[in-house]
């Protein structure tokens, strides 16, 4: 594949997918809650732009609705809700100690390579940029899972959870010009409800275990310890 042979649209998608992947990596390394939420909002913005671009090129008006929905939900509403909750829980100054930042980033690189390896044997993808974009969206999903695994703070885990949805949305967008409208609306609804429920949880957690550190939740065991 020669980059010069690609159309402008394909090059733009290329750049956008690289930027989204970059935001995933920077989330992985970010230890301040507020910055983490900001990067998440940027990722949402990039997704919205991608959706608008795909809508423009493929001439599918329903994708404009998706783009708008993404911008409103992922770039504005959910980050706003998270910020407000962080303020109300007085966590804005909190800095998470990342146990092994270098190792985590290296693991992230490994996940990206792994994603490319997975998409390699797909025949219908030879000679198309979709191979790159599918691999990258899988990498975004896996990086978000890594974020959830490495964090101990409930708010950061929620950001990871939402970033997974971002990766999935991106996958649907760049590989298939978006899912059917009804499915996208359903997914957006689920994400919104999840965000509201997470907010409820932060307060329940704070009032019951007096912390948002998930390591404090250690009462239930798989087997009887005695």
């Amino acid at each position: 594949m020669n980059i010069a042979n690609l159309s402008h649209y394909e090059q733009a998608i290329f750049v956008l997918s690289a930027l989204v992947l970059y935001t995933s990596f920077s989330m992985l390394a970010q230890s301040r809650l507020f910055n983490l939420i900001n990067i998440f909002a940027w990722q949402g913005t990039l997704l919205g732009i991608t959706a608008a671009l795909v809508a423009f090129i493929s001439n599918q008006p329903h994708l404009y609705i998706s783009a708008l929905l993404t911008l409103v939900l992922k770039a504005w509403l959910i980050p706003w809700m998270l910020r407000k909750q962080v303020m109300r829980l007085k966590l804005q100054r909190e800095i998470e100690t990342l146990a092994t930042p270098t190792l985590t980033s290296l693991a992230g690189v490994g996940l990206v390579i792994f994603s490319y390896y997975i998409a390699l044997p797909i025949k219908s993808l030879s000679n198309s940029i979709t191979r790159n974009t599918i691999s990258e969206s899988l990498a975004i999903v896996l990086l978000a899972m890594l974020l959830i695994i490495t964090r101990r703070q409930a708010v950061s885990q929620v950001v990871g959870f939402m970033a997974i949805e971002n990766g999935l949305f991106f996958a649907a967008l760049v590989s298939t010009y978006g899912m059917p409208m009804i499915v996208e609306l359903g997914i957006a609804f689920d994400v919104l409800v999840a965000a509201v429920l997470f907010g409820v949880f932060f307060f329940e957690m704070r009032s019951s275990i007096d912390s948002l550190d998930v390591d404090q939740m250690n009462r239930l065991h798989e087997v009887d310890k005695r």
């Binding site: 899972m145 959830i148 409930a154 885990q157 959870f161 997974i164 999840a194 429920l197 997470f198 949880f201 329940e204 957690m205 009032s207 019951s208 275990i209 998930v214 939740m217 250690n218 009462r219 239930l220």
Partner: peptide, 19 residues
């Protein structure tokens, strides 16, 4: 029931099933 155990269980359920 809002007990610490039930909140732990619900959080696990939410995150694990969601992911």
């Amino acid at each position: 029931y809002r007990t610490p155990e039930s909140i732990e269980a619900a959080w696990k359920y939410f995150i694990l099933c969601g992911v």
